[in-house]
Design a protein around this nucleic acid. Structure first.
Lengths: 209, 209
DNA sequence: GGATTATGAAACGGTCCCGTTGCGTATCGG
DNA sequence: CCGATACGCAACGGGACCGTTTCATAATCC
């Protein structure tokens, strides 16, 4: 009845242990396929198994359905380092948008973003994963920058941080998706930030820096 | 060799004419399925035929591939009446975002938006259709409002109209997609507009209205 | 009526994928 | 070595669609 205890104290079941290498290649194959534009609904277990060099059995033994597998796979994506912050608030925000813009250049990133936008509708757990994986870290970083600006007086003290994040991120995504102009415009981040900083309303005769 | 000329001058081919009713039900069935969350890649000709009460032959006779059919189907979507404009620029912009917010409540609209965002990556002709169908009309309407504000002095004279549209629309989409808070917040449009109008930057002691 | 074309239904062979099972082999604990 | 479990592989029966073809019927022109 006695089973060997691992260092972590988990009960070690008898027999051949599961291959961590198989785990990794399954996850990696899943991410590869998603990154090539395969949507969750088109993603087939067989294609994953084939890509990973693994039997279907090995996959079914670990995940009972596709959504679970995709959720786990996405969990391994590391949020890209978001921001070297240090300059003025404007500079930091520009840098932030530049990172997004650069990410958007990669086909893989665009595919993942598409999954986040679309498949989340039918898979709430995916949506939650994306929120905590991609949205929340960025929100936190930008919020820190904005709050710093609010303290130094560079920004309005009553700024709505969530609203500001939505304006900036939303604008970047919208433009890269729908702008007629070449989306690779180098000055897009600056233009977005400056419009957002200045605001649309006219101001009675204040010299702009 | 002679063929009868219709009133429009088009050559009338011999034999039974194609059923316009079939045309319509095919298009309608396609939009129904897309509106239920079926993505373009999952959309099957057989399901369309079945839904439309039509033989597959009838579909294949008119469209040689799925993308063509979807493009034609989307072309029949009328852009929702965008804006009763009349009040202040702020009021008109709030109304504009309210329309978007209201549309987003409908599951069908969200599905169509998802297709616009995701499937456009793989189907450039779809992207183009969406641009001229949904994006451009809105851009035009909002641009008109903004320009009016620039003329009356309510808005900055050097406002970047495209950037402003991106900020507003992008923020709305971003928030309805990723906001933790209840997306049906009634005051979302006002909050977006006001942040955008005021701008993030602090202003040296100017009383806010 | 006769020629011509369209229509819905059904069936075709073919492909892809499903989720499961059996097989021979590999890797663990005891 | 032995029992237990995991492995990759191949095969299973079953389902969904593909794009095409055949067929009896319907609509239009002459």
């Amino acid at each position: 009845m006695k089973t060997q205890q691992t260092a972590e104290g988990a009960a070690r079941p008898a027999g051949r242990p599961r291959s961590e290498k198989a785990d990794r290649s399954i996850i990696e194959a899943t991410l590869e396929l998603l990154g090539e534009g395969i949507g969750v609904s088109e993603l087939s277990i067989e294609s994953i198994a084939s890509r990973a060099g693994v039997g279907k059995t090995t996959i079914y033994r670990r995940w009972s359905n596709k959504e679970d597998l995709v959720v786990d796979a996405l969990a391994t994506l590391k949020p890209p380092i978001p921001l070297p912050q240090g300059g003025t608030v404007r500079d930091d925000l520009v840098t932030y948008l530049r990172v997004i813009q650069e990410e958007t250049r990669h086909h893989r990133t665009r595919c993942i973003m598409n999954i986040a936008m679309s498949d989340s509708e039918r898979h709430p757990r995916l949506a939650e994963r994306f929120r905590q994986l991609a949205v929340e870290p960025r929100r936190a970083v930008v919020a820190a920058v904005l709050r710093r600006g609010m303290e130094t007086g560079e920004l309005r003290a009553d700024l709505d941080v969530d609203m500001a994040l939505a304006l900036l991120s939303g604008a970047m995504i919208w433009l890269t998706k729908w702008s007629h102009a070449d989306a690779s415009q180098a000055d897009l981040p600056e233009r977005i930030i400056d419009e957002a900083l200045k605001g649309f309303r006219s101001r009675p005769s204040i010299a702009e820096p």
